[in-house]
Design a protein around this nucleic acid. Structure first.
Lengths: 344, 344
DNA sequence: CTGAAAGCGCTAACAG
DNA sequence: CTGTTAGCGCTTTCAG
C-alpha cells in the first residue's frame, strides 16, 4: 500500500514522470491541454507514489478549496447528527473534507460562524437547520453569501431560508397536515401543540400544516393551545407541564419535533398520564430512537441522512441562475403513542 | 460590526498600522520581539478592519495548522455526537476548526481516514471510539502517528489504544464492575451479556469489569452467556433474540453500551417479556435518551461531552515525553430497567 | 501540447 | 526591536 510520504510534492511526481510541474498539475486536475498518453503516465506515477496534494498550497494558488463547511444548530441533536452523517458519507465518496460548526440556534452566532467559514476559504457552505424569521440576520447572511458565491463558492441549505441559494426542503407543511389529519381521524378535537421557539421557519411551516388539517374539520389553530418553548427535550417537558396545567381537557399533544415529543412523554409519565389512553402524543422527524420509546412514537418521517446527501449533492453541481429546490417527501409513521380520543 | 472583506491581507493591516509585514505578523501571532505599544496598535487596526488570516497561506508558510481532525466511528451514534459536541465547543473557544471523518468501525477504513487527515496537514488529530485488537492496524497507525508527531502534529485519543499518544480513558472497567455488582446485589445470578464485536478494547474492558464483579461472588464469565454482535441497536436486538432462545433462564441482560441496550429492550418488548419484573436490563454510557426510554434505563454514566473537551485539551498542551492519561470517572445511574431477580 | 515563470498570503530566517 | 527577503507547494498566465 502506498504510504503518502510526508513531504512528497508535485515536483517529485513531475520529475519521476519526466514532465514539467505545469503538465503534472494539469494532468492531475484533469484539465485539458495534455495528451492522454502523458496524462495517464502522470496519474500512474502519482498513484504509485501515493501522492496527495497539499490543500493549503492548492487553495492558496487559487484552486477551489475542497473542504465543506457545515453549520448545524447542535451536533448532538439526532436530527442534525443524521443529516451530518449523510453529508460525511457523500463527502467521503467525493474525497472532500467536512468542517462542522455549531450555531446553537442563535442567529447572531450563526452569522459569525458563517463569516468564519468564509474567512477560512472553504469551497462549499452547507447550512442545516431551520431558517429564522429575522429580517436583519437573513439580509446580512444573504449579502455575505452572495459575495462568497461571486468568488466561486457554492452554498446549499436544508430548510426554508430566504437566502437565495439552493435548498433541500423538508415537507414540513405536508407533514404537519398528515399528523393533524391523523389525530382528527382518531376523533381528537382538543389538541394542544408543543411548538418550538417562534421565529424558526420550521416551526412556522409545521404549524401551517397542522392548521390546514384543522381547517378541513372547521377548526382553527387560534382555538387551540399552542405553547412555544425550546425546540429540545427540555422545551417539550416544559410545554407539556404547561398544557397539563392550563388545558387539562386536551386529549392529544402534537410536538413539532421528536426531541420535544420525548420531553412531552417524559412529563406525562411523571404525571402518570397514560399514553395513548388518556393522551395521544405525536412527534416529527422520526429520529432513530422514536421507534424505541415506550410507547413507540407516532411521528412524521423525514429522510435526514438522505437530506444531508442531497444538500451536498446540490452544492456539488454547478450553480444555476435560479436557485434550485428539492423536496424531501415525508411519511406518517403511526406507532403506539396515538390512539382514539377518550370518550367522555 | 467589522465585515471581513474578502481580500483583506496582512499587508493591508501592516500598512495601515505603519509597520512592516513581519512586525504585523509577529504582533498578531503574539510572538515576542515587538514593543507592547506597536503590538497593541497592530492588533487594534486588525480588529477595526475585521482582518482574518488566510489559514492556507499561514499553514503553507510553516505555521502550525489550526484545524483539528476528529475521527469517530459514526457521527449519528449519540455516544460520538456528544463527544463531538464537546470537541466543537472547546474548538470554538480556541478559534480552531474541526474536520470530522467517519471510520465506520472498520480498522482499515480508519487507517485510511487517518492518512487522509495527515495528508491534509491538519495540526491536531483526535481519535474517538474504541481501539482495536488488531496488531497490524495499530502498528501501522502508530508509525503514521509517530511521523505526524515528529513533524509537530499533536494527537490524542478517547479510549484505550496502543498508539503511544495522550489518551482520555473512560472508566470502562470500573463501570463494568459497578453494573455487575448492582445486578448481583439485586440477586441476579443468571446474567447474560450482550457484547459488542470482539476486537474492540472498549468491549474487552467493560467485560473485564463485569468479570471482576462476578468473581467477588464466586462466579466467572465463562459460565454465563456472552453474545457478541454489532455494537449498535440492531446488534442488541439480535443478541437479545439469541439470549431468549438459547438461555431463557436468564434474569438479567447487561448490554455493553446503550445503543445495544435499546435494541435489547426493543426485542424484549416484542416478545412481551416484562422489564424488570421478568428480565432486568442495564446499559452503558448514559446517552441522553437513556432516561426517556420506558422503562428508563439503568446504565453507567460517562461524561461524553467532557471527554471530547478533555481530548482536545490534551492535544492543545505541548507534548510530553511520556504520553499522558486522564481518567474520566463513571457513575452508576440506577433507573427502572433493573429490579430484584424474580424468585422461582 | 508542453514548459518557464510569476505569484497566492503568510512565516521565518537573516540583517540591521 | 524592526524591516527585508526568501521560500512554503501549487495553479495559472504566457511563451514556445
Amino acid at each position: 500500500m502506498p504510504r503518502p510520504g510526508p513531504r512528497l510534492r508535485l515536483v517529485d511526481v513531475a520529475e519521476r514522470a519526466g514532465v514539467s510541474l505545469a503538465t503534472a498539475s494539469r494532468a492531475l486536475a484533469g484539465r485539458e491541454g495534455v495528451s492522454e498518453e502523458v496524462a495517464d503516465r502522470v496519474r500512474q506515477v502519482s498513484r504509485e507514489l501515493g501522492y496527495v496534494a497539499n490543500p493549503y498550497a492548492r487553495t492558496l494558488a487559487g484552486g477551489a478549496s475542497s473542504t465543506v463547511g457545515l453549520i448545524v444548530h447542535q451536533i448532538d441533536d439526532p436530527y442534525f447528527s443524521e443529516i451530518a452523517s449523510g453529508v460525511l458519507e457523500l463527502a467521503a465518496e467525493e474525497g472532500l473534507l467536512v468542517q462542522i460548526a455549531h450555531s446553537g440556534r442563535d442567529p447572531d452566532h450563526e452569522l459569525r460562524q458563517l463569516r468564519h467559514l468564509i474567512a477560512q476559504r472553504v469551497g462549499i457552505i452547507l447550512i442545516a437547520g431551520s431558517g429564522y424569521d429575522d429580517q436583519r440576520m437573513e439580509t446580512e447572511a444573504r449579502t455575505e453569501l452572495a459575495e462568497f458565491q461571486r468568488a466561486g463558492g457554492r452554498v446549499a441549505v436544508v430548510g426554508r431560508h430566504s437566502l437565495g441559494v439552493d435548498a433541500v426542503l423538508p415537507d414540513n407543511e405536508a407533514g404537519g397536515r398528515a399528523i393533524g389529519a391523523h389525530l382528527l381521524e382518531l376523533g381528537h378535537r382538543r389538541i394542544a401543540v408543543a411548538a418550538g421557539i417562534p421565529g424558526l421557519t420550521t416551526v412556522a411551516d409545521r404549524l401551517t400544516g397542522v392548521a390546514a388539517a384543522l381547517a378541513e374539520h372547521g377548526l382553527t389553530l387560534d382555538e387551540l393551545p399552542v405553547v412555544h418553548s425550546d425546540f429540545t427535550r427540555d422545551g417539550g417537558r416544559i410545554a407539556a407541564e404547561q398544557i397539563l396545567r392550563e388545558h387539562p381537557e386536551s386529549t392529544a399533544i402534537i410536538a413539532l419535533n421528536d426531541a420535544m415529543a420525548i420531553g412531552v412523554l417524559s412529563a406525562l409519565r411523571a404525571h402518570r398520564v397514560p399514553v395513548p389512553e388518556r393522551m395521544s402524543v405525536a412527534g416529527f422527524d422520526d429520529v432513530s430512537v422514536a421507534a424505541d420509546l415506550a410507547p413507540s412514537l407516532t411521528t412524521v418521517r423525514l429522510p435526514m441522512t438522505q437530506m444531508g446527501r442531497m444538500a451536498l449533492g446540490l452544492a456539488l453541481k454547478p450553480r444555476t441562475t435560479r436557485p434550485r429546490r428539492r423536496s424531501t417527501g415525508q411519511t406518517l409513521v403511526v406507532r403506539d403513542s396515538t390512539g382514539p380520543a377518550p370518550q367522555n
